[in-house]
Amino acid sequence: MIEKKVVKEEANFQKSEAFSRTMIPGTFARKMRTCLIWQFIRFAIINVKMIIVVGKSH
């Protein structure tokens, strides 16, 4: 008998047909959103990009 494999992050795919046709982040992607080191790096990168956009807009 095959053991049941429950992946919490994938549960919502079954909740609606529309949900099942899109992408839902897995554990790693979710962790990275609040991983302080990674988010500090992203903070610097997003800021630089935003400053460039602001500069191009004026």
Partner: peptide
């Protein structure tokens, strides 16, 4: 999506 955007 992430904390970085939130801080911004």
């Amino acid at each position: 999506i992430g904390l970085a955007g939130h801080w911004i």
